[in-house]
């Protein structure tokens, strides 16, 4: 009976979600031009329309995605991932680690215990890095929002490219044999007995998904709204093709500049996508914009400070350098190929 109740509730919720979601564009137009009686084609009115349409759209996508990912994540725990990775050879390990990085629950505040947990369990250093690169960079929220806004090609490119960077950069870091640049206490750390896992049933998984929605949406909604506000400003006020001259394909320096600009910035993935959308609209090249986005969400100063606890400065720089170089190469590749 409980299963039936949950199924009915979920179905009703999804139907209602779809009904609202697919009428948002009409609502945005009605709100801007009928209710506020703004002129079609003005700067302010197109900014307002963008904001009124995108805000509920992105927030609704976010709720759906976080719930779905929450369910998937209830199948994966760091303990299980570690078990899979320990004792794997390097190349296979790098690939597996990058893939598991996408689905294992991860928060940058847990990067240190995770790193130590992996290394002390015998996961090779390069494999651990593949995981540490892929986990924040291939953000499931970004992935599904890209899919919702630009379709499967851009989403697929983002994921493929993220995996490639994580696999290759991790592999290179492994080859460099940087073990001596890890703070010595990491190897002396005595890991306690692993926490035993509770059995979880379907109801538990659904609850896990709902808790994820509450935790994540309450944390990121402000980034989303700020991101959309910036996006709306660009959408309404920046002239068409204005960005093409310095963020377009022909500006060779735009990719490294986008990465340099993106590293110190930190924003939630959900907040950066509306900006990405507005930049693309105004003539920025896809490779440049993707490079910017990956630098913002994949590399950040707070992360560097956290990693400094376990890595000596040289390894922190090497890590950031290799990942940044990977992002730049990918950015160029996209601009040349597409």
């Amino acid at each position: 009976m409980r299963i039936l109740k949950w199924t009915l509730l979920l179905t009703a919720a999804v139907l209602l979600w779809g009904l609202i979601y697919f009428n948002l564009a009409a609502f945005g137009g009605w709100f801007t031009y009928s209710l506020l009686k703004m002129q079609q084609g003005g700067h302010l009115s197109s900014a307002v329309e963008f904001f009124v349409f995108e805000t509920p759209k992105v927030l609704m996508l976010l709720v759906l995605v976080v719930f779905g990912i929450g369910i998937i994540r209830s199948f994966f725990t760091p303990e299980r991932t570690r078990k899979i990775l320990s004792g794997k050879s390097e190349t296979v390990g790098n690939i597996l680690a990058a893939l598991l990085g996408v689905v294992t629950p991860f928060c940058s505040c847990s990067a240190v215990p995770l790193f130590v947990g992996f290394v002390t369990a015998g996961v090779p250093l390069g494999v651990t890095f593949s995981f540490l690169i892929s986990a924040p960079m291939i953000n499931e929220i970004a992935l599904v929002m890209l899919f919702g806004m630009f379709g499967w090609k851009v989403a697929g490119l983002y994921m493929g490219v993220g995996l490639l960077i994580a696999i290759v950069a991790g592999w290179i870091l492994g080859r460099l044999h940087m073990e001596k640049h890890i703070e010595p206490w990491v190897f002396e750390a005595k890991m306690g007995e692993a926490v035993k896992e509770d059995a979880i049933n379907w109801e538990g998984r659904i609850r896990y998904g709902l808790i994820a929605v509450r935790d994540i949406v309450s944390k990121v909604w402000i980034y989303v709204i700020l991101g959309i506000a910036v996006g709306a400003g660009i959408h309404g006020y920046v002239p068409q093709d204005f960005l093409a001259s310095f963020m377009g394909k022909d500006a060779w320096w735009s990719v490294p500049a986008a990465v340099l600009l993106g590293v110190p910035m930190y924003s939630n993935a959900a907040g950066i996508i509306p900006i990405v959308k507005a930049l693309l609209e105004k003539g920025a090249a896809l490779g440049t914009v993707l490079a910017f986005m990956m630098a913002v969400i994949g590399l950040s100063l707070p992360e560097a400070i956290i990693l400094r606890n376990i890595l000596k400065p040289k390894l922190v720089f090497t890590f950031f350098g290799i990942v940044a170089a990977g992002i730049i190469i990918i950015g160029y590749l996209f601009n040349i190929l597409l």
Partner: peptide, 28 residues
């Protein structure tokens, strides 16, 4: 202290420990 935290065997923070036993990891 991260070294002390590792002794409990957790890989996600925050964690709740009661009388030396880890009860919950990575959740509020």
């Amino acid at each position: 202290d991260i070294k002390e935290i590792m002794k409990f065997g957790v890989m996600m923070t925050p964690a709740l420990v009661v009388d030396g036993q880890v009860k919950v990891v990575g959740k509020i």
